[in-house]
Design a protein around this nucleic acid. Structure first.
Length: 569
RNA sequence: CGGGGCGUAGCGCAGCUUGGUCAGCGCGCCUGCCUUGGGCGCAGGAGGUCGGCGGUUCGAAUCCGCCCGCCCCGACCA
């Protein structure tokens, strides 16, 4: 219940051409948010109401799933992040600061460490399982914030953590959270795809992202439109066609390639298509050094390589290592004659003959290289990113490239936090074990942006009922007309009693301005008090939908009907 | 972090190439009149160290250097 005359919601008629994303433009124009600095936004009263509604939906579903809400500090001792190795892993993305005594702290980018330490108070299997969650501000010093509220440096997120005695228990806790997420997406009226993803370098498995499919999204994934299989390129499985060598093996040739290091350069220089090249990528896998081979036009998936070599830690080998094993400057490594490394080759190369590789000498490449003859493959594996056009592993249909906004992310952590932080319990058998954890994130401010991104038209935002900042706006057109004003005031009095959240548009503005702003703000129900008020009638409309003229006394009934769906038909 | 763009009145922009009636426009704001169903109309008015610092010059919004900030593409992203 508020009057627009008192509402702090400055609307903008124009906005800089630099602001590109629809959600960003509309949330700014409609007076929901303001930018303080790159990736930092103030939520104005209307924006806050939307976020609160999203939060309440999330809260209800979390509670219904048996999770318990708590509230953890945003400020963490850096030491805690060092125990799990994440201070280093996150690097500059973690916002660090010191207190007056010089003790190092950080602003939490997430809360696994803090919640795990808290959970370590659990002593017995009898206290398990449980799931904790909070709705908290997160800080991430992203190298490039973008897209308005989609990717920012300070944002609010619901993060939940489950604690179980074993993996079977985790699976159960995880399934409950996933089910809750499905209901949340339904309630905020967003379409979504559940996408298999990578747990990232820190570990975890069964990682899934809930993605809003939209061209303006920044995540990329592949999806089979016939059976619904979806995955990020790094983890996407695909059906491999049986490859047969189509050509005879030709004699190996050395070819001078002065200064030609990259695939593009070599392709250009030798005049061969990139699929005839084979990339040799040298990685440090824990203590070992491995060479991964993929076709020149493909991208290596570090996730798949890491699985194939069963390494805890995988990173590009240092230049010195590459030079040692290949005997050549970076850019000329190849499988023929390389030393001290295991060679892993992408399955796809089984069908390749006579390809071009680095020559392990400065400015040298080799032509007509063949595996088996010129070098031995130690291990064949799927090592490349999936691509659009690959075949679905389930049904064989083609995979399509999608872009999306990542709304939520779930994954199974196992004991990767409970072990270093000593979150143990005594099991039935008297054995001391680390708790088995899962974690479940959902960005609430991002969700507001995603809803706008998905639901708007040329005139402005079209909020679903479930998260609209107000459900009904009474638009009083002529403020000077006593009769009209009386009708508007009566509605403003009565509609809340009928259960509606009401905004009264009573500013000293012209009718046009009020209509434009009402559409821009996207309030689902509009009650227009205008000329017809003299006859005791008002116009009841759905933003983006139908409109009808009714007696003032019937406005509530008409609104109930017209607003019975979450989004206009 | 690499590439590109931008920074001039509260907001949106022009001016910069070619230095000198260039401190300009639209919207908003204030006053008065008028109007009240889709960002009215008329008249008058206030408001800017041209992102910052330094340099070139008789003279800099304009040219040069450094810095800061913001946007976009890429790298990165639990």
């Amino acid at each position: 219940m508020v009057r627009t005359r008192e509402l702090f919601a400055p609307t903008l008629r124009q906005i800089s051409g630099e602001v590109e994303l629809a959600s960003h433009r509309l949330l700014l124009r409609a007076g929901f948010v303001r930018q303080l600095a790159a990736g930092m936004y103030s939520l104005l009263p209307l924006g806050l109401r939307v976020v609160r509604k999203v939060e309440n939906i999330v809260r209800q579903e979390m509670d219904a799933a048996g999770a318990q809400e708590l509230f953890l500090p945003a400020l963490h001792p850096l030491e805690l992040w060092e125990k799990t190795g994440r201070a280093q892993y996150w690097g500059d993305e973690l916002m660090k600061l010191k207190d007056r005594t010089g003790r190092p702290f950080c602003l939490g980018g997430t809360h696994e460490e803090v919640v795990t330490q808290l959970a370590s108070e659990v002593k017995s299997y009898r206290e398990l399982p449980f799931t904790l969650y909070q709705i908290q501000t997160k800080f991430r010093d992203d190298p490039r914030p973008r897209g308005g509220l989609v990717r920012v440096r300070e944002f609010t997120m619901k993060d939940a953590y489950s604690f179980d005695r074993d993996v079977a228990g985790l699976d159960c806790s995880y399934d409950k959270m996933v089910a809750a997420y499905h209901r949340i997406m339904e309630r905020v009226a967003l379409p979504y795809h559940v996408v298999d993803a990578s747990g990232g370098g820190i570990g975890g498995w069964d990682t899934k992202e809930f993605e809003l499919p939209t061209e303006s999204g920044e995540s990329h994934y592949l999806r089979c439109d016939s059976c619904g299989y979806a995955a990020t390129p790094e983890v996407a499985q695909y059906k491999r066609e049986v490859q047969t060598a189509g050509e005879d093996e030709l004699p190996l040739e050395r070819v001078e390639t002065p200064g030609q290091r990259t695939i593009d350069q070599v392709t250009e220089f030798l005049g061969v298509p990139p699929e005839k090249l084979v990339k040799t990528l040298i990685y440090q896998a824990d203590e070992r050094v491995v060479a991964a081979l993929v076709r020149g036009d493909r991208d290596l998936s570090e996730d798949k390589l890491q699985v194939a070599v069963e390494a805890k830690k995988l990173e590009m080998a240092a230049a010195a290592t590459i030079e040692r094993v290949s005997g050549a400057p970076v850019g000329f490594a190849g499988p023929v004659g390389i030393k001290e490394v295991e060679i892993l080759a992408d399955e796809e190369l089984r069908g390749e003959r006579n390809f071009v590789t680095g020559g392990n000498e400065d400015d040298l490449h080799l032509r007509n290289v063949n595996w088996g003859r010129d070098f031995e493959v130690n291990q064949w594996a799927d090592l490349r990113n999936g691509e659009a056009g690959d075949l679905c592993p389930g049904c064989g249909g083609p995979l399509t490239a999608y872009r999306g906004i990542e709304l939520a992310h779930v994954f199974k952590l196992g004991t990767i936090y409970s072990e270093p932080l000593a979150a143990h319990f005594l099991d039935e058998d008297g054995e001391r074990k680390p708790m088995v954890m899962g974690c479940y994130g959902l960005g609430t401010t991002r969700m507001m942006a995603a809803i706008v991104e998905h639901s708007h038209d040329d005139a402005g935002i079209v909020w679903p009922m479930s998260v609209a900042p107000y459900e009904v706006v009474i638009i009083l057109l002529n403020h000077d007309d006593e009769e009209h004003r009386a009708v508007a005031e009566k509605l403003y009095e009565e509609l809340p009693q009928e259960g509606f959240e009401v905004l009264l548009e009573d500013r000293f503005e012209r009718a046009g301005v009020k209509f434009k702003d009402a559409d821009l703000m996207g309030i689902p129900g509009q009650v227009v008090v205008g000329r017809l008020a003299a006859e005791g009638k008002v116009e009841v409309r759905r933003r983006g939908g139908e409109s009808r003229t009714v007696q003032v006394g019937d406005a509530g009934t008409a609104l109930r009907e017209i607003l019975s769906t979450n989004l206009p038909a």
